[in-house]
Amino acid sequence: MSIVRFTLNGAPVSCEVPADALLVDTIRSAFGLTGTKKGCGTGDCGACTVLIDGVPVRSCIYLTCMADGRDVVTIEGLGGPGRLTAVQQAFMDAGAVQCGYCIPGMIMVATAFLNRNPHPTREQARESVSGNLCRCTGYQKIVDAVMLAAARLGEEGR
């Protein structure tokens, strides 16, 4: 067992886990943050994406021990009812959500993408979510949501 200390959604946390514990399981079980979904468990679907030091990471192929000393942000760390981020609001307004299972991962990826690339082309927005699988919407409205968030963030910045 190893003791791991990191920042989770802004608060310092610690936990004791086996060396092969996966971050997605730790986040969900030890910390009860079930917004992060475990889909494929093989790093393919992107539903488990969290931000580690600002970079999107698939928490199902990331050991909890690897997070020691780092800054981890889950979907719960972005915003909640009444204080949604522009990306979360845009996903709702664009109708990008059907069953919702992929959405936390989509929003984490889109958030990191727009932080780095605030004025994307539609093609770049498509590519940004290309590693996240959605079986409901056919992706168009998800890409619409990323573009809508970009436009709104651009207006805020002006």
Partner: peptide, 22 residues
């Protein structure tokens, strides 16, 4: 970890030590 952690979770390897070099 994109390959190595998957090898671990899928049971293809059972190491005594994980050496994290990133």
């Amino acid at each position: 970890g994109t390959d190595a952690v998957l090898d671990l979770t899928e049971g293809r390897v059972r190491p005594e030590a994980i050496v994290y070099i990133a």
